[in-house]
C-alpha cells in the first residue's frame, strides 16, 4: 500500500528543496534525503515511505531548474507524482530520473494520508475505500523513458533521444 501526500497548487522548487539545502551547499550530499519539503511540510521527509504518491494542485514544480528537487523525492522513494499541470523543467527532470508523473486532476478525490495501490502498468489507483481512479495514459515516448529507468539508461540503450528517428 502507498500513502497519499496531498499538496496545494503552485508548489515551487524552493518549497521542494530550498536552494540553501542544495548538494552544492552540503558536506554530505546524501543528506539531501532529509530535505524534501523541509520548510513547507516538515513531517514529510521523516515519514514518507518508498512507493508513496504525491497528489498536488496545478503547476507543480514551478521555479528553478534544480534537479536536486526531484532527486530528493527519488531518494526517499516517491513512487509517482500526480498533478493537473507540471512546470516543464520539473517534469523533464523527473522524467529523466525515472519518476512517473501523471498529468491528472485528483484534487478532492483522495485524502491526505489515504492508503492506495498504484498500478503503474495500467495507470490506475485503487483506493482503500474500493474506488478505482483511471489516470490518463502518458504519450508513448514518455512511457519508453520510464520503462528504461530514465533518460540516461534510455540514451545508452537506444543511442538516440526521444523523437529522433
Amino acid at each position: 500500500m502507498a500513502r497519499v501526500w496531498i499538496f496545494g497548487a503552485d508548489i515551487n522548487t524552493d518549497q521542494i528543496v530550498p536552494g540553501r539545502y542544495a548538494p552544492y551547499m552540503l558536506k554530505n550530499e546524501d543528506d539531501l534525503r532529509k530535505y524534501p519539503f523541509i520548510e513547507h511540510r516538515p513531517d514529510f521527509a521523516g515519514n514518507v515511505r518508498p512507493g508513496d504518491i504525491i497528489v498536488a494542485g496545478n503547476n507543480f514544480g514551478c521555479g528553478s531548474s534544480r534537479e536536486y528537487a526531484p532527486l530528493a523525492l527519488r531518494m526517499v522513494g516517491v513512487g509517482a507524482i500526480i498533478a493537473p499541470l507540471f512546470a516543464r523543467i520539473f517534469f523533464r527532470n523527473a522524467l529523466n530520473l525515472g519518476i512517473p508523473c501523471f498529468t491528472a486532476d485528483l484534487t478532492g478525490k483522495l485524502r491526505d494520508g489515504q492508503e492506495v495501490e498504484l498500478d503503474l502498468e495500467r495507470g490506475r489507483i485503487h483506493t482503500d475505500d474500493g474506488r478505482t481512479l483511471q489516470l490518463p495514459p502518458p504519450p508513448a515516448f514518455l512511457r519508453e523513458v520510464w520503462a528504461a529507468g530514465g533518460i540516461v539508461p534510455y540514451y545508452r540503450k537506444y543511442g538516440r533521444f526521444p523523437g529522433e528517428g
Binding site: S65, P70, I89, G150, Y155
Partner: peptide, 27 residues
C-alpha cells in the same frame, strides 16, 4: 541550453534559450 531556469534570458538577443536540469545538460 543552460543549467538554470532563467536561461530564457538569451531571448534578449533573439536566441532560443531554455533551462534544464543536471541530466539534460550533461547529455
Amino acid at each position: 541550453v543552460g543549467s538554470d531556469s532563467h536561461s530564457t534570458a538569451y531571448g534578449c538577443v533573439g536566441a532560443f534559450g531554455t533551462g534544464m536540469g543536471t541530466t539534460d545538460i550533461a547529455l
